[in-house]
Simulated scan of single mutants.
Amino acid sequence: MTFIKITEQASLYNNLEDKPISEILTDINNEDKKVALAVEMAIPQIEKLVSQIVPRMQQGGRIFYLGAGTSGRLGVLDASEIPPTFGMPDTLVIGLIAGGEKALRNPVEKAEDNMTAGWEELEAHNVNSKDTVIGIAASGTTPYVIGALREARKKGILTASISSNPDSPIAQEAEIAIEMIVGPEYVTGSSRMKSGTGQKMILNMITTSVMIKLGRVKGNRMVNMQLSNAKLVDRGTRMIVDELGLEYTQAERLLLLHGSVKKAIETYKKENKT
């Protein structure tokens, strides 16, 4: 089957510079409406991936994201949100981007074209068979990602890919291929738009569902979140008020003493058994 890059096909819109702002915004919004439907079609593959990640992480495994450009930045972003949201160490979900830290803000010339760099970076983290390696590339053709997935799979490591083109090269290298076909971008080839939005949605789905299954959420609440600002202390305090029926000041004192909603509630219930 011939590999077709839908991500490089011409936009469905033309003469963008001649359009009024309201029409540009409406057109972009109409294209964005297609993203959630494309992600929905990939839920079976996402579910398959999550169901295999959870037992690995229960045994000490980690998630590694690899990508270049927008894809790499989104992987780093999702990884960086796990500690404050779920109170997990920053060593459990790790984002790697072609070109390293500099590439988060500035393009690094030809970094994504290095076929061996991704695997070398994984080796530096002592990647092993309990881990999961997820390659992200809208085009599905990024050498940095392809090389890493290929070597990881050879070593018996669970691999997955997230791309916006069907039957892409990274899908061929991955055990689980998540394909989110959002169609041509509003600005031709600008995969920071629909493809980027869909990637963020999928990464949210993966890590949120994993963290729920690892017990980092109770009911529908972030009971393990880091108390890094006044807003989060207030949120946590109100959770304790709702759960235990305490006065606000007592709940806040309990929260700050134990450092998390979960520990505060568990300790209070243990100490006040009837």
Rank of each mutant, 00 (worst) to 15 (best):
M41T: 15
L232K: 08
M88I: 10
L232V: 11
A38C: 08
G140C: 04
V108N: 01
T85F: 09
K263Q: 14
D18R: 12
G60V: 10
N14H: 14
A79P: 13
N128L: 02
I24L: 15
I170A: 06
D32Q: 06
I6K: 13
T159S: 12
A160V: 06
M205R: 06
I4R: 14
D27L: 13
A111I: 08
H125M: 12
N128C: 15
P89T: 12
N272C: 08
G61C: 08
A174K: 13
G95W: 10
S168N: 01
S11R: 06
T91H: 12
A42D: 07
L96T: 03
A124Y: 02
L227R: 10
G135I: 01
T70C: 05
L49A: 11
S191F: 09
K130Y: 11
L74D: 03
L122W: 06
N106V: 15
Q9D: 04
G245V: 07
K34W: 05
Y268E: 02
L92A: 08
T237S: 10
G147F: 06
K194S: 08
D32M: 09
V54M: 04
G219I: 03
I157R: 03
G99V: 06
L74E: 06
R150K: 15
A251Q: 01
M115V: 14
G219Q: 11
T237K: 05
R62T: 07
M225V: 07
G61P: 00
L74N: 14
S139E: 01
A36Q: 03
L92T: 15
P184N: 06
K213M: 15
R150Y: 04
V187C: 03
G198K: 04
M201P: 02
I146S: 10
G99S: 08
I4M: 02
